[in-house]
Each structure stands twice: as structure tokens, then as C-alpha cells.
Design a protein around this nucleic acid. Sequence first.
DNA 1: GAGCATATCTTGGCAGCGACAAGATTGCGT
DNA 2: ACGCAATCTTGTCGCTGCCAAGATATGCTC
Lengths: 194, 194
Amino acid sequence: MSLPRYARGVTTMRGYHHGDLRRALLAAAVEAIGESGPAALSLRDLARRAGVSHAAPAHHFGDKAGLLTALAAEGYDLLAEALSRPGDDLLESGVAYVRFAVDHRAHFEVMFSPGLYRADDPEVAAARARAGAALRGGVAALPARAAAEPARDALAAWSIVHGFATLWLAGALPPDAGRDPEQAARNVIRRLFE
Amino acid sequence: MSLPRYARGVTTMRGYHHGDLRRALLAAAVEAIGESGPAALSLRDLARRAGVSHAAPAHHFGDKAGLLTALAAEGYDLLAEALSRPGDDLLESGVAYVRFAVDHRAHFEVMFSPGLYRADDPEVAAARARAGAALRGGVAALPARAAAEPARDALAAWSIVHGFATLWLAGALPPDAGRDPEQAARNVIRRLFE
DNA sequence: GAGCATATCTTGGCAGCGACAAGATTGCGT
DNA sequence: ACGCAATCTTGTCGCTGCCAAGATATGCTC
């Protein structure tokens, strides 16, 4: 009796009798969104990718919005981790934000499309709060001259990195923005310190 | 014989025998996206709203992506108009950008979701170029001290207003950002000039 | 270690959707 | 007045999300 297809190399968070279908479906969703965007996502396609029947996903996530809710929560946790790593340097925190958006495009697109999932879900709210704390942690170490209005400065910093990331992902930037998003982002963010 | 429902008060661009279904469908799309977001858009629902059969939209737009392509082109034209009005004041151009996003949420969401439509469509490209020119026109009038690197400054300005607008529309901003997007945006954009 | 409750997954079905094909209707130009 | 082309309708197919009901495996209890 061979292992089911979706159990290959999966680290089971909670060991279920067939592996961890929940995790396999989330991974398949990231893959599918990376190929065709969140709008084209299909639960039946995810089931096929995971090698299970078309109704299996419903048991883990309820419905499509439930799956995307779990993906958004996972995304906010990944973002919190990515933002807490560079520490107190606001420039590097901003670059980390853009890098997160590029490296985890699927998560990022879902996270900021609240019409696709249940943004008021408790797990999402908790993970979002963690990411928000990490974001504010980076902004807290602003140069003194800009500390006059910290809430305003935090919003400006968030806006500029979020806007750059969004425009980059949308392919809206002109070619002269370059090919390396990190370099271009660093260049843009520096504008806040001059 | 009464006029068909969708012909009420429609200024016909090209007078077809039943009014201007094309325009009626685009208006219905704006309405539907405003209610449920672009992902939930359904051509059959638009047809019902316009009072025509389910296959009528296909003749004007080919497919769903065709309709959203037309909507994106219309959006870029509206944006170009909105950006050319405030003239040379970069602050007011930025506020106009945010106001456009809030007032034309449906257009804005589609425009920057290139997976939903054909971003390389000639009409879209032309309208996008017009909007880009209007955007650069606003940035050209930057205060002298910031004119060292105009391409970088333009990208920074675009990023900050686009990011603020996106975060506002996503409902991602904390409550202390206030209720009036224009006022909050003005406050944030001013950060670029200090 | 046998039975049972439960979580997990499958099968089957329904309504709505996008897209296509083919036919009906209307308006316009000549 | 006639014919043509643009416009719209009807019908159909495969796909999707969701629901209901049944099958299967797991782990717990004794």
C-alpha cells in the first residue's frame, strides 16, 4: 500500500490518518495562485493537485473563503516573521516588506483582498496584530528629526512600501524601474530620509 | 412598444438599435463590483441587470476579460482626467489620486489587478499612457531641493499615494487614521515635503 | 485487543457560471 | 423595398462551489 500522493515529504502538524491534507491544500493554493492569480482559484483544482476527491477540502476549510482565510492568516504570520528579523532599521524593514510581497506573492495578494476571505476571523486578526506590531517596531526607530508625528510617519512608511510592492506585483512600473525589486525599493524608501 | 430597460437616459456613443448595451453593461459592472468585488463579478448577473439575455454581453466584449479590459481602459481615462485637473501642485495631485481610488473603487481595483484583464490591450495601453503623463506632470513641479533624482521622486510619490489608497480600500488602516481619506492622505503625502 | 465514536474522505447531485453554436430580430444603407 | 450586417436569444457543454449521505480509517476505552 503506497502512501497517498499528498503525503510526500510533509511535516505533519497534527498527524491525521492520511498525512496533512490541510497543509497540502494550502501549499497547492499558493502554487495555483502563483500560476493564475487568486481569482482563478478552484477548490476542485486544489483537490486534484492534492490527489483527493473534490469535496475533501470542504471538511478542512468549510468553503473557499475559509481556505483563503487560512492562507491570509498564514501570510500575516510570515509577514510578522519577515518584519521582525531586520530589527530596528526602518530602511531594511521596508525592504523586507517588499521582499515578502515578491517572495510570497500569493499570500500577499490574498491578504490585501479582503473581499476574498473573512478578514474578521480571529486567527487572521491575531496574526495581523502580530504583523502590525512588527511593523510599528521598525518605525519606532526613526531618525529623531522625523519623530514629530510617529503615527503619521508610520502610515507614510507603510504606504510607500505597500504601494511600491503593489505596483511592482501589478507590473505597473515602467521598465526603467529596473529588474531587482529590492534595489529599486531601497532607492525609493531612502526618499523618506532625505 | 416601450423602450428596453437599459436604454433609459443613456447617451449613445454609437447609436445601435437597442440603445447602448455596452455602456449599460459597464455601468452594471461598476455597480456589481461595488457591491461584491471584482472576484464575484458574473457576466450573467450583468446581463440580468441590463435586462438582456445571458449571452448578450459576449457580443460586445467577447468574454469576461474583455469586459474588464474595457473597464480598465475607462478607468485609466478617468484617472488621467482626475490627475490633470489639479495642475502643477504635487500635493493636490496626490490627493486627487486617492480621491479617484475612493470615488471609482471598482475601476481602481480592476486597473491594478492585471490578472483579471488583458493589460496589453492597445486601448488600455493608450489610456494608461495618458494617465502616466498626467502623473508625471504633477511630479515635474516638485520643490527644487527634491529634484535631484526626478525618476526616483516620481516613483516615491506614486508609491505613497498608491499604497495609501490601496490600504484604505482594503480596510487595512487602523481606526486612528480617521474617516476622511482626503484629509488623511494629505497628511501622509506632506511627509514627502518635510 | 476488540468495539466504538469520531474525524476524515468519497460519491452523487444541484444550481450557477463562462463560453460556444446556431438561429431569430432589428435597423440601416442603397 | 430589399438585403445585409449588427445585435440579441435560445440551447448546450463542461466546470465550479456547495450540500447531503455514505464509506473508511484512526485512536480511545475498557
